Amino acid sequence: MASVDVVIPCYKYGSVLPTAVRSVLDQPDVDVRVLVIDDASGDDSADVARKLAAADSRVQVVEHARNKGHIATYNEGLLEWASADYCALLSADDALTPGALSRATRLMDAHPEVGFVYGRPLHWDGSEPLPQARTADKGWTVYNGHSWLRRRFALGEGCITSPEVVVRTEVQQKYGGYDPELRHTGDIEMWMRFALHTDVGYLRGVDQAYYRVHGNNMSAAYYASQVADLRQRLAAYVSIVDRMDGQLKDKADLDRQVRRVLAKDALRRAGRAYDKGITEESPVEELVDFAVETFPEAASLPEWHTLKLRERLGTKAARTLSPLVLTAPARRIRQHARVFRWEQTGV
């Protein structure tokens, strides 16, 4: 029977922690251990964790005397504590679907070349009972790691939310954990780093985890975060390019490709600010600056020209005409992206 160590970092999520822990302990056909790391929550979260540990010997608790932050907490569990065949990181406000660990470990048992496995996350609003998940085994796909990695560069974004991933512990500890320099895209970078060295497994047609969706506050701060998001995504890809020590000979082409993709994304976001009439609260100028810094040929992109047309028309006219004319290039881009995305295989 495969063994899996699951790390559950917790910061002020004591109220939902029992759901996460129980979803691990109830996993069939695997030998599990759980480590709850309370990162100095300062509320009753540590008390909840201790009660869970007292009720089941498979649960252990570590309490931080001071807050260390999410990256350090993740790495403490994955790199210092985990010792089972496989390991996983589960946020305290998420949960595993029934049978998720046995499905993932069966794939990796059958394919020693696979470093990590993922499936679909089921987005969930946190209400009880948990929604019905797809758990019937539909088989799997094993991707060549470098092919999977190239797809990430082609799209400029990850395809994993995190709780649906199970990693071979040997791979996790050999190639490292979350990069503390990448506070918001450390997961994307880490999966790509693993793919440099191992193949990637995907479980078809099943939900592997419940991913809790929190409401976004559509404020000026939210819109401003778009530039930070793009910069963090770029930093993740630059980090991987720097790590390509001969594994991928076309790394210069990959670097140019992802920079072009991210520049297009920035320009589309700037254009949508005109379409929605929110140019005052959206960082249009900063988005354009990012596009030019990232991809010096940004002025040759179709998104640049449609943005300039929006600017000439002004916010009011652009918002009125956008359903008819201005968003057509973006729609075509999305249609082409869907053709190339491996939707049926989850990538």
Rank of each mutant, 00 (worst) to 15 (best):
V4N: 11
V6H: 05
I8S: 04
L17F: 12
D26R: 10
R33Y: 09
D39A: 00
D43R: 08
S45Y: 15
R50K: 13
K51D: 08
D56I: 06
S57T: 13
R58Y: 13
R58E: 06
G69W: 02
H70P: 12
I71S: 09
E76S: 11
L78S: 05
S83V: 09
P98E: 07
G99H: 09
A100V: 04
S102R: 14
A104K: 04
R106I: 01
H111K: 08
G115M: 01
S127A: 15
E128I: 04
N144S: 15
L149S: 05
F153D: 00
F153S: 00
L155Y: 15
I160T: 06
E164P: 12
Y175N: 14
Y175V: 14
G176S: 11
D179I: 05
P180M: 02
L182F: 07
H184C: 03
T185E: 07
T185Y: 08
D187G: 07
E189L: 01
M190A: 15
L196Q: 11
H197M: 11
V200W: 02
D207K: 10
Q208R: 08
A209P: 11
Y222D: 12
V227T: 13
S239I: 02
K251E: 02
A252G: 11
R256A: 13
R256K: 15
V258R: 04
R260K: 12
A263I: 03
K264Q: 03
R268H: 01
R272K: 15
T279R: 03
E281G: 15
E286M: 06
E286A: 12
V292W: 03
A318S: 13
Q335V: 10
H336I: 07
Q344I: 04
